[in-house]
Every structure is written in C-alpha cells, then in structure tokens.
Amino acid sequence: MDFTSASQQITGGQIAPVYLLHGQETSFMAQLIAQLVTATQAETAVRYDFEEDGVEQALLELQSVSFFLQQPLVVINNCTVFLSQGKNSAQGEALESYLQNPVSNRVLVLTVQADKLDERKKITKAAKRHLVVSCQTPKEAAALKMLQAYATEQAIQIQGNALAELWRRTGTVTLARNELHKVGLYAGGKAVTEADVRMLVTQTLEETVFDWVDHVIKGQLVTATEHLVDIERQGYDPLALLAMLARQLRLMWYAKALQQKGMRLDDIAKEVKAHPFALRVADRQSKKIPLAALERTITQAADIELDVKRGRRDPQHAIELFMLQCAKNVAGV
C-alpha cells in the first residue's frame, strides 16, 4: 500500500494491529505515526531501536495490560531484520512470532529505511499478513503537488519555478520540507523565488555530480572544474567519477547508434537495462556529438581507467586529463 492510501485509511478510522513502513521518506513515516497516535488516542508513541534495544521490551509493552493508563502506540525503528543483509537472530524470531499472532487492540509500527524488503524471509512474509506501507520518494509531479500543499499549510508562499528548483536540489519530500522552512524564513512573508532557493539550498552530491557530467560532455570546462572542486570537497572518489562519466558516454552511444538502426528510446532503455529518463538525457547530450567522437572518447576513458587501476596514473590527474579530452572530442579537435 502507498503512503496516501494508508493515511486515508487511518483518517477514516481503519486501524491495523501492525504496520511495516519502509522507504527513504522518513517524513511520511512520522506523519503516519502521528496520525496513529491521534486515531488510537494513545498517550504517546513509545519508541525503540531494533539494532540497539532489540524487541523484548517493546513486545512486553504491547502484551502488558494497564487498568489506569491509556495503552501506548509502540514503534520499533531500524528493523534491519527485513533486509537481505539483516541477520536472523533470537530478536528476529521473537518479532516473527508476535507477527503471527499480534495482541488485539494494540498497534505496533515497524520502520526500515529501505525501498526494498527481502521477500524470501519468513519474517517479511509474516509482516505482509498485516499492512506494509511504501514510504518511497514519489515521482516529480506528485512530489511537487505534495510540497505545494505543505507550503500552503505552513503559510509559505513559493513560486512554481522555485518549487521545481527546490525539488531538483533535494530529491526527497522529507529533505525538501525541511528546506522549505529555511527559505520561508529567509523570504520573510514574501514569495520564495528561484534565486532564494539557489542561494540557500545546497545541491545533493548526486545532483552536483550529474551537473558535472553534463558540463564535461558539453565541453564547458570552466563550469565543470568548479563543480569538480565542490565534489572533491565532499570526498568523492575520482575513480568513481571517471566510471560514472564513462557510463554516461556509453548511454549516449547506445541512444545515438541504436536509434540510427531504427530503435525507439524506450526499447533501447529496456535493451540496455537503463531508466527511460536516463536514456532521454543521454539522447539530448549526444545530439551534437558525432558517433565516431563518442567511440573515441569511450576508448580513451577505458584506457585512462586502466592506467589508474594499475597505478600508472594519479586519479586526480586522470580526471582532469579526461575532462580535457572530452572537450577536444566535443569540439571536433
């Protein structure tokens, strides 16, 4: 079930005994838990961490009966036992046993910050007998709609292009909501502009790297170098950057070469197992670059990467050299 449907069910009074919330949007999880506290009239949400606290105390809390106090809502965070890398343990077995037969009129919420669960595990199958809620990052259109509603709720005015730039720089609703408060305070009651967002909101590392790749491929060395300095400050591995740039060049080659053979971009994406959006970006980037120049650049990338791995070339020098070679190939030098 998705976040919106789960939220609507709780608002409508449909409460499940167990919820497993998974995904990267922690603000969605927090919202659902807050709704459950209200809906169940619990005094509070009693929180535990699976890795640090285990489950014994949490299960005891659920199984104990109080004649004087309202029963609390129990939350166990960081439930790594549902992931492929999560180890089976006595704690996991105890939790699985509870999931097989949860206490009626109690609510247990389990959270795990991961988009995918290990469906092969018995404990995951036991949890799927209850309500599993995906708190994954929505697509851009849905995210912008959520953020606009949140801005209105918080009495923050923000221009449409500013909201789009905020989303581009954050990439998750949770992070964007946090940044909205900052830019809203800065605007001081006025509408937040795109310039405000650019000045106050730092791009994610992934977005900075994407921009760097784009500028290198376009031969914009000055801007690319500025981005490279920002990336290096954040400790990004030069060899990883080189590999990422080489991968984008290969996608550009696929987009150009296979379209010339009559294939559609969506079919190419399936063939090379890439996201359709990534292929569209690669297609745009490859428009002004001859196929031969792309092939030459990909070969150079492979040679330089091999030199780095064999210790014949310094990684930092390799990145700078390859940026220069890319610019020459794009310019047709």
Rank of each mutant, 00 (worst) to 15 (best):
A6W: 00
Q8A: 11
Q9S: 09
V18F: 04
V18T: 11
H22G: 07
F28W: 07
L36P: 00
Q41K: 10
T44A: 15
D53C: 02
L69H: 14
P72M: 12
V81S: 05
L83A: 06
L83M: 09
S84Y: 08
G86E: 01
Q91A: 04
A94C: 02
K121W: 03
L131I: 08
A143T: 05
I158C: 10
L163W: 05
L163E: 05
R168I: 00
T170S: 09
T172W: 00
L175A: 14
E179A: 10
L185R: 15
G188I: 03
E194A: 15
V197K: 02
L205M: 10
E207C: 07
I217E: 06
K218G: 06
T223F: 04
E226F: 09
V229I: 15
R233Y: 09
R233V: 10
A240G: 07
A243S: 11
M244G: 07
A246D: 08
R250V: 11
L251N: 07
M252V: 02
M252D: 05
Y254G: 07
K256N: 00
G262M: 13
D266Y: 08
A274R: 10
H275Q: 12
R280S: 09
R296C: 02
A302Q: 14
A302V: 06
V308W: 05
H317S: 12
